[in-house]
């Protein structure tokens, strides 16, 4: 119930921002589409904590800010590697442990690794991610415990 309410609020906001035409007819169309989508979501049984983690929403901005800085750092590294006159990369596969209980945080972990250039998640097992790394240095940044700490604090709320 709480999820459906949050979902309809978000959808209504999304519709209002994209539309830009605020006359009665289009507003009614928007209302109908919001109700239809929430009803379909409910009927498919996908309106729960997994599809819309409400309790996570207030912690996420903090995580995103940290992730943005990480993305900039690894971008600079990869850009440097691309412009080097002689190609100096050691592409390799490696495994990273993902000791999280919930699937959601595991997905966030895998996607954060993919989102930072230089590392791409290739396969997901129970508690192990298979990662392809571009260089030794990106490998080291993977193995630092910083990301795991951040994700553990995220998981506390779930």
């Amino acid at each position: 119930m709480k999820n459906s309410l949050v979902l309809s609020a978000l959808l209504a906001l999304f519709w209002l921002l994209l539309s830009g035409h605020y006359v009665v007819f289009t507003l009614i169309l928007g209302l109908v589409s919001v109700v239809l989508i929430v009803w379909l979501n409910h009927k498919m049984g996908i309106s729960d904590e997994h599809t819309l983690p409400v309790s996570l929403l207030k912690r996420l901005p903090n995580y995103w800010r940290w992730l943005f800085v990480e993305i900039i750092k690894s971008n600079l590294h990869v850009v440097k590697k691309i412009w080097q006159p002689t190609l100096d990369i050691e592409p390799q596969f490696t495994t990273v442990s993902s000791p999280f209980k919930t699937n959601l945080v595991k997905v966030i972990h895998a996607n954060s690794i993919t989102l930072t250039p230089g590392t791409v998640t290739v396969a997901v097992d129970d508690h192990v991610l298979l990662v392809h790394a571009l260089t030794k240095q990106t490998l080291d940044s993977l193995n630092s415990t910083k990301m795991n700490d951040k994700l553990t604090t995220l998981e506390k709320d779930l």
Binding site: V78, V79, P91, T114, P117, V120
Partner: peptide
Amino acid sequence: SRTHAAGV
């Protein structure tokens, strides 16, 4: 390796 370039 090319997927990393696309990531940038």
